[in-house]
Nucleic acid binder design. Sequence first.
DNA 1: ACCGGAAATGTTTGCGTTCACATTATGACG
DNA 2: CGTCATAATGTGAACGCAAACATTTCCGGT
Lengths: 362, 362
Amino acid sequence: MTHSCRTLRSFSRAVVNAHYDGRMPRRSAEDRAPSQVDVARAAGVSTQTVSRVISGHPNVRPETARRVMAAVDAVGYRWHAAAASLASGRTRTIGVILVSTARYSTSAILLGAEGAAAEAGYTVITASVPQHSGPAAFTDAFDRLERQGSEGIVVLAPVGFLAEALGSRVERTPTVGHRQSDGIGADALIDQRAIARMATEHLLDLGHRTVWHVSGDEFWQESSARRDAWEAVLLERGATPPPVIPGDWSPASGYRAGRTIAAIPDATAVFVSSDEMAFGVIRALHEARRAVPGEISVVSVDDIALAAYATPALTTVRQPFEEVGRAAAMRVIELIEQREPVSVEPLRPELVLRASTAPPKG
Amino acid sequence: MTHSCRTLRSFSRAVVNAHYDGRMPRRSAEDRAPSQVDVARAAGVSTQTVSRVISGHPNVRPETARRVMAAVDAVGYRWHAAAASLASGRTRTIGVILVSTARYSTSAILLGAEGAAAEAGYTVITASVPQHSGPAAFTDAFDRLERQGSEGIVVLAPVGFLAEALGSRVERTPTVGHRQSDGIGADALIDQRAIARMATEHLLDLGHRTVWHVSGDEFWQESSARRDAWEAVLLERGATPPPVIPGDWSPASGYRAGRTIAAIPDATAVFVSSDEMAFGVIRALHEARRAVPGEISVVSVDDIALAAYATPALTTVRQPFEEVGRAAAMRVIELIEQREPVSVEPLRPELVLRASTAPPKG
DNA sequence: ACCGGAAATGTTTGCGTTCACATTATGACG
DNA sequence: CGTCATAATGTGAACGCAAACATTTCCGGT
């Protein structure tokens, strides 16, 4: 790898390709892969007809198509995506920006997006951004995806500064984020406030006087959205919102929060912003001999596969992650193809009742 | 979407593009995006020089490079990946095939691969395959990735039939699987037998007479590799291997297995093939009033974030998922660039001692 | 048999880049 | 100060495909 001209650093990072590594000799005419020209010759038709058959155009006689496909097999032809992109101006590729923290939700959303994209004939390329990155990392990732030809981009990282970080980029490349309030042209994929509302109301409905809250990583917009909604519900119902106990999505942070809660004598109900944190919370409570749900009820968010196998099994608000991914991908594709959205309904979270909540004692 | 010629179904699925959806008008000369020609004109150099600057070739005078980059900014030039691919014959893209089940390991490995690829200047495209798919789904995914220009492919699905399903494909496109025994040209990324060995020996060393085993989904080669090694260790140490209790990686299957184990009076130690299943096992044991690790020790595999927050905290054999992803990506890239492997060492699993194992009573 | 319109196919051109090779500038050395 | 090697730049062509447009074939209605 030879890099030249460090002085260029100050210029558009969006353009420079840093990975020069020697020339690649052009293949000689003999060992070149067969092209549509070869197929056309073998089938006795024009290259255009070959192109039409390959890309599924109508108006080709079945018999001709059959001949062409036979020729394809005979010469071992393989479609060349790059050439097609160059000629057509289309790549049928969407980019996904994800934060590089391994989590169930990450893979579920990505899988959903990939599936939906594949069904629509699109390919997904990914770019990851280190956790807690600043705006620059996001613009870099965006630029990388754009340079690879993404016709649209899904940002699976609802961070507050996204809209300003991306700036005018979102005008030339359709972009979808998690949330409407990102201001990047997408409808809300899932109503985070509804999640917090369902969780908080569930605890209040059970008879708890108030509900404590372990929040997620402040880096994520979900965290503040849920916190705000939780607070709003409490005020609405005449309860006093206790101070927020900060978390960062990790089980370890949940554990720390759990120790805090265990030390609060009159705490009887907690709304924890993720299942993983809830595991930590419950373990801390357990170690402090505070029974769940006997003394303290816990409701969380996500409904990961393990939620049902916590002790006690977690009552949680399910997020349809895969659907979120599907919806995001479908929405960008609609934007790319300038179609009307099939659905503008936000996805519905769902309260899954299990064993970690109960009415307060007495 | 118009589809024609169903009769073509029988021909190479590897070639046909099913997603014709009307023509896309070619953009007129005015609103066409600026190309290297425009930059060259603005900078007063040849397009070749522009190309050299953009792609980081050496042998360009710094002053010239600066002029070119200024022109790039001035005209708003953006590099066109497809055109470059066509001209150079290289796409700098690797494909990843993954099984569409959302799991921690999936995202961790993928993130690792994406990170390593990005560092080497490669882009990652993904194709998912439904869980429990037959060979056809894998070849389809492989073909999809190839048609998009993947220069190499990472298969994150160590299924037994991979080698035969992929057939000669792996000769033209460098392919890396999880395991050496895939026979698809990759070194073992992680030694599954070592995992089983560490887990089993740990329990035996604690003094247990024998070790029961809850296996993973038979679809995955890991399952049988671990089962074989577990059995081998037992025989080696003069213990009698009890019958395998089948699981499928899910917590629910672990729970079922746990109920089975709870009914076996003399079972004192279990090697569970994944942390998620271990949660299910432990819960079933707990419900059956069988103490862990008091009566029954449990050791599992993965060391997911939640492992430390199970009750009791899971003793488990950690798999370095992200490193696996990195190694896989680096290995394909080495194959693509025909370089010698930087390292052929398989990744080392690691036994993480926590609270779910103990010596047998008495 | 003739006509007209649609279906089927062919011809030409251009997409934006990099390669191979050609040429010109630069600088080290005798 | 001329001579080379080497660095720096330029020229022309090719990459494989689809768009646009041109042409031919087909077929139903008269």
